[in-house]
Write a protein that binds this DNA or RNA. Structure first.
Length: 558
DNA sequence: AAGGCGTCCAACCGCATGATA
DNA sequence: TTATCATGCGGTTGGACGCCT
């Protein structure tokens, strides 16, 4: 489309901008409205002047009247946009300041792609500006294979989330659930609770993980490619919508994480888990352990059907959720799962992370930030991994490291291909999660040997100085922390993993033994996958996490 | 100098929501 | 209750521009 020059159009408009229909000059595309061809394309200074003048006289709003009465041959939407983004007073122009950038990152961590809401926190900035900034930033960081959120942002989000939790807010969650007819059978929880008496590690399961996964996991339907359209939730719920972030008080009060739960509840487009079945884990105990009775495959990261790159069915559009820090009630986690620390946040960002916190984060629809980071990071890392892991996939002798390697690869090659989206960000994400996070290397099965994700040789990503610092800093982490942030499966189920490890430690079982078992279990999963013994639907990344549990259980019963 | 390529950003488009007739 | 309109939001597009080869 060629554009009318400012000069020529300025001249034309300056002559008369009264109620005479403008005849499209043919230079600019336009659409007919009431027989008038409305202009499209870049605004000229003359048009701006007309619009400004009109708004001064009549105020904002009633934008369609602008076209009728001012002689501007622009549709109302165009006028509104032009005014809002360029002409209204107090608009800040120019590059974002460091403070604004920090705020954007922070807000995005909380809100996800809620540009308008973010703009409300940035006086003088428009949603469009912020959106453009973020998109370019994403692309840049994506290319660089870097995490989107600096640790301090995650930490702050975490703290705010805790504050919000303390403020309460469970009631509306339940309401929302009911409104959406998302019912979680009591029997599911009964099973879980029953297992708490049977399985020592279940006993320590924090309510929080269940409820948070309920809420956030259910709420993450926008990541489900298989979300039934019947589970429709309007694309956007406005501020009037009751928040949805926790299941219900019967399990635990779940205050809404951050403020966005108020109006982003439909970002929590809850998916109806019905119709999904437990597809791979033959262990009934493990099944029962699955949180909230959800089928494993219902987690976006747990099944290969999720694709952030392809449209989901119905209204389950892939609206990124915001980063959400889960229930961080330290008391509920017991001694083995302390509150995430700052360094944890580092790892949290740098690599997909496991703790119960992340677990719910990943499940959360409001987690766009983190999931974004995971996806982007994963894309880069997984491509690097794919290049370097060709040989591992063909190896018949598998070391633990190889297992995870080929496991990862098979994850990609089987599950993501199944869903017809081989380049699905999540597919890559899952792959990279494993490649990056699986700490159990051939050189040592001890959990203490876990290397920081960024030290993996497969990653040839250049790190910015600050980010490199985070990475290096993690080398000094305690084993438990490394566990938290390097277990691939921990990404989804590590709260239980942590609990289990802690329990095993209490029982005098070495972490090495646990690691070996887990590796074996991983290998088992891997073999299952490679052998195609699992259904093509509904399972994936999280499988090892859940399967790990029985392994630990066995340890505890030794 | 010219072409390719990537980035930035203004603007458009489709959809959802709320108000009102 | 339904239809229509106005508005707002988020995703996407496409042109301008700069850099590189």
């Amino acid at each position: 489309m060629s554009h009318m020059t400012n000069e020529s159009e300025d001249e034309m408009l300056s002559k008369d901008h009264t109620d005479s229909p403008m005849i499209d000059d043919g230079n600019v595309g336009g659409s007919a409205s009431r027989g008038i061809v409305l202009k499209k394309g870049p605004w000229t200074s003359a048009e701006d002047a007309i619009l400004v003048d009109y708004v001064k006289k009549h105020g904002e709003g009633n934008w369609n009247a602008v076209q009728k009465h001012s002689g501007l041959f622009r549709c109302g939407k165009s006028c509104r946009l032009r005014w809002a983004n360029h002409l209204r007073p107090n608009l800040k122009k120019g590059a974002f300041t460091a403070e604004e950038e920090r705020l954007i990152i922070e807000l995005h961590a909380k809100m996800g792609n809620k540009w308008a809401r973010m703009a409300a926190h940035l006086p003088g900035r428009t949603d469009n500006e912020i959106k453009n900034y973020w998109n370019t930033r994403i692309k840049r960081r994506q290319r660089a294979g870097l995490p989107l959120y600096p640790p301090e942002v995650c930490l702050q989000a975490l703290q705010e989330n805790q504050q919000n939790q303390n403020a309460g807010g469970d009631h509306a969650h339940h309401d929302q659930l009911q409104t959406n007819s998302y019912e979680i059978p009591d029997v599911t929880f009964d099973s879980l609770k029953a297992n708490q008496g049977f399985l020592p590690y279940v006993q320590e399961l924090p309510d929080i993980s269940v409820s948070s996964m309920l809420m956030k996991g259910f709420g993450s339907s926008q990541y489900y490619s298989f979300v039934p359209s019947t589970a429709h939730c309007p694309k956007r719920l406005r501020e009037s919508v009751a928040p949805l972030s926790g299941y219900d008080g019967s399990l635990r009060n779940e205050p809404p994480p951050f403020d966005q739960t108020q109006d982003d509840s439909c970002d929590n487009k809850m998916s109806e888990p019905s119709g999904l079945s437990f597809l791979y884990d033959p262990d009934p105990i493990t099944r029962n352990l699955l949180p909230f009775g959800l089928n494993q495959g219902s987690h976006p990261l747990l099944n290969g059907n999720f694709s952030a790159s392809k449209p989901t069915s119905g209204a389950a559009k892939s609206e990124l959720p915001s980063l959400q820090y889960p229930e961080t009630d330290s008391g509920s986690w017991g001694s083995s799962s302390p509150l995430p620390l700052l360094e944890s946040v580092d790892a949290f960002i740098q690599s997909p992370q496991p703790s119960g916190t992340l677990q719910s984060d990943c499940l959360s629809p409001q987690n766009s930030g983190l999931l974004d980071a995971l996806i982007h990071e994963a894309n880069t890392l997984s491509s690097a991994k794919n290049q370097s892991s060709d040989k591992s996939s063909s190896s018949s002798t598998v070391t633990p490291g190889d297992i995870t390697d080929s496991y990862t690869q098979n994850m990609c090659e089987t599950k993501w291909e199944d869903c017809g989206d081989p380049i699905s960000p999540l597919g890559n994400c899952a792959a990279s999660i494993f490649s990056e996070c699986t700490p159990i290397s051939a050189s040592g099965s001890s959990l203490a040997d876990i290397q920081p994700a960024a030290t993996f040789p497969v990653s040839n990503v250049k790190l910015e100085p600050a980010e490199l610092a985070w990475t290096l800093d993690r080398e000094n982490r305690e084993i438990s922390t490394q566990l938290d942030f390097s277990r691939p499966d921990a990404l989804l189920g590590s709260c239980w993993f942590d609990q289990s490890v802690a329990y095993a430690k209490d029982q005098g079982i070495t972490t090495d033994a646990i690691a070996v078992l887990l590796v074996d279990d991983l290998g088992s999963d891997h073999n299952q996958m490679a052998a195609g013994t699992t259904s093509s639907q509904g399972w994936g990344l999280g499988s090892c996490a859940w399967n790990n549990m029985p392994a630990v259980c066995q340890i505890s019963e030794l």
